Amino acid sequence: MNPTINRMTLVFLGVFVVAVIGVGVWTVGWAIPAKRCESNHKWWDHAQRVCATPVLISDITGRTIQDKQAEAAARAAVGRPVSKQP
């Protein structure tokens, strides 16, 4: 067979192997942790690969949400249970 064809076969095979390894690393390193993080109602940062817990503004400021429906919706959005206060 022509040596150029053999060389091109090896080049394409090498590129394919590198691409498959790259997709595997991306899946294990970014896609699976992102899916797990977002299923737990947290924020995933792709750049730093960090799973962060969302914080309500009322937790930072100490001010409470006066409307109970709005508070329940905000807590549900960040994945927290609604507190049952009398």
Rank of each mutant, 00 (worst) to 15 (best):
Ile60Asp: 07
Glu38Asp: 04
His46Thr: 09
Met8Gln: 12
Gln48Ile: 09
Val82Ser: 06
Lys42Tyr: 03
Pro81Tyr: 10
Gly22Glu: 02
Ala76Trp: 05
Val11Glu: 00
Arg63Trp: 09
Ala70Trp: 10
Glu71Arg: 09
Asp59Arg: 11
Gly14Glu: 02
Phe16Lys: 03
Ile32Thr: 07
Gly14Trp: 02
Arg36Phe: 04
Gly22Gln: 03
Pro33Thr: 00
Lys42Arg: 15
Ala70Cys: 07
Gln66Leu: 15
Pro3Asn: 04
Ala73Met: 10
Val25Lys: 04
Gln69Trp: 08
Ala73Ile: 09
Ile32Gly: 05
Trp30Gln: 14
Gly24Pro: 01
Pro54Tyr: 03
Phe16Tyr: 11
Ala31Glu: 13
Pro81Met: 11
Pro86Trp: 14
Val82Gln: 07
Trp30Thr: 09
Ala72His: 09
Pro3Ser: 06
Ser58Lys: 07
Glu38Val: 05
Ala34Trp: 02
Ala34Leu: 06
Val50Asn: 14
Val11Asn: 01
Ala73Thr: 07
Leu56Trp: 06
Glu38Pro: 01
Gln85Leu: 13
Val20Trp: 01
Arg36Lys: 15
Met1Pro: 07
Thr27Asp: 10
Cys37Asn: 00
Thr9Ile: 08
Ile32Ser: 02
Ala76Gln: 09
Thr53Phe: 04
Ala47Ile: 12
Val18Ser: 08
Asp59Met: 11
Ala31Leu: 15
Val28Thr: 09
Val20Asn: 00
Met8Asn: 06
Gly14Pro: 03
Leu56Pro: 06
Val50Tyr: 14
Pro33Asp: 02
Pro54Ile: 05
Thr64Gln: 14
Pro81Gln: 15
Gly29His: 07
Val23Gly: 07
Gln69Thr: 10
Val11Arg: 03
Asn40Trp: 01
Gly62Met: 02
Thr61Pro: 01
Ala73Asp: 15
Ala34Asn: 04
Asn40Val: 00
Phe12Ser: 01
Ala72Phe: 05
Gly14Asp: 05
Ile21Val: 13
Val20Gly: 00
Pro86Asn: 07
His46Glu: 09
Pro33Leu: 00
Ala52Met: 09
Gly62Arg: 01
Pro33Gly: 01
Val82Asn: 08
Met1Val: 07
Asp67Cys: 09
Lys35Trp: 09
Glu38Tyr: 04
Ile5Ala: 13
Val82Asp: 06
Asp45Phe: 12
Gln48Tyr: 13
Pro3Asp: 04
His41Gln: 14
Val50Met: 13
Val55Gln: 12
Gly22Tyr: 04
Thr9Leu: 11
